[in-house]
Design a binder for these strands. Structure first.
Length: 325
DNA sequence: ATAACGCCCTGTGTGC
DNA sequence: TGCACACAGGGCGTTA
């Protein structure tokens, strides 16, 4: 299940192999992965024909190719999506959904392969955002600071020198409501802390809420909470700043380690852009370890049903709060 | 307004 | 053997 590190691995592959390529053929083999392109399949095909890829950018788990038409090809991998660059004569994958023929680049074609089809592709318009564009790893230049905030929220001091041009501070419309991600150097932790204080919810729900902080999914949420020794249902409004800082450090560290490994793979559904399966060799401390010994204290890891999915935690290191959510 | 629930989708594994 | 069902879960529409 691709989360931020896995999507970033894919982004890097796309940036390396696709920038400068022109899309000259589009084939949609299944309608569902294109469902978020509201104007329909024919329009999707038409908008991609003849456009050239300028850049590959990511925020959280969303990934997009900036196109010379001014639009973007937006991708979300969902649970089982893959973007593969394959030789055109390579046999079709069983779950091949969309094929993009390319010229002027690597000579390969881009394939969107997705078994469960929670993910998808769409050609979307770009919009200016108040938080200064995609930022983060591989985004537009992010060495300048711009007031960070979501629409309608208070913004700190005004623009400081070094900001990049407003024209570059564009983000796909469907991504505009997503917060900066955990590895984005422009993530506004003060703002995040303020929003967490106002929230009446549990810590893991907040970590999974992509409008607060993006890129974290079920696996990295459990891993980071285990490292921080925090229970998933702890109320967010009582989280003090040092604890939040430690938790964010743990989120970043677990993601950086995964990134260094080239992404994680747990059920071999995830494959990177070149078809190589990534694997988090170091393994996991909490996720999927029900009944196994905690790597810190030896207590059996527990699994609880939560938000229609599973939460794994050590009942000793991460004691259940009295008023948990 | 916020918070939480339910649905989508397919393949795999398990139990009867 | 075959069937039913639980499970994996991100995002979004709906409900409370």
């Amino acid at each position: 299940m691709p989360e931020l590190p896995e999507v970033e691995v894919v982004r890097r592959g796309l940036a390396r192999w696709m920038i400068g390529s022109t899309i000259d053929q589009v084939e949609v083999l299944h309608p569902r992965p294109v469902r978020r392109h509201e104007a329909g399949i024919d329009d999707f095909v038409q908008r991609l024909a003849g456009v050239t890829v300028l850049d590959a950018v990511r925020r959280g788990k969303f990934l997009w190719l900036n196109l010379d038409s001014g639009e973007a090809l937006l991708a979300h991998l969902g649970m089982s999506g893959q973007l593969l660059l394959e030789e055109p004569d390579a046999p079709d994958e069983k779950h091949l959904r969309v094929r993009l023929g390319l010229r002027g680049g690597s000579g390969r074609e881009l394939r969107f392969v997705d078994q469960r089809m929670f993910g998808g592709l769409a050609v979307v318009e770009m919009v200016k955002t108040p938080d200064g564009g995609p930022g983060g790893l591989g985004g537009v230049p992010s060495d300048g600071e711009i007031p960070v905030g979501l629409p309608g929220e208070p913004v700190g001091e005004g623009p400081v020198e070094g900001e990049y041009a407003a024209e570059e501070a564009l983000i796909p419309v469907p991504v505009a409501h997503i917060a900066r991600d955990a590895l984005d150097p422009l993530l506004d932790v003060d703002l995040l802390a303020a929003r967490l204080r106002r929230r009446e919810t549990g810590l893991k729900r907040a970590l999974l809420d992509q409008t607060l902080i993006s890129g974290i999914g079920n696996i990295y949420a459990d891993e980071a909470l285990w490292r921080a020794k925090l229970h998933y249902s702890r109320p967010t409004e009582k989280l003090n700043r040092p604890t939040l800082n430690r938790l964010l450090d743990d989120v970043r560290n677990v993601m950086r380690e995964a990134l260094a490994q080239g992404g994680t793979s747990f059920d071999s559904l995830y494959v990177d852009v070149n078809g190589q399966s990534g694997y988090f060799e170091r393994g996991l401390d909490a996720y999927g370890r029900e009944g196994e010994a905690c790597h810190r204290c030896g207590t059996q890891i527990r699994r609880e049903s939560f938000m229609n999915r599973s939460s794994f935690f050590c009942p000793k290191c991460q004691p259940t709060p009295r008023n948990g959510r």
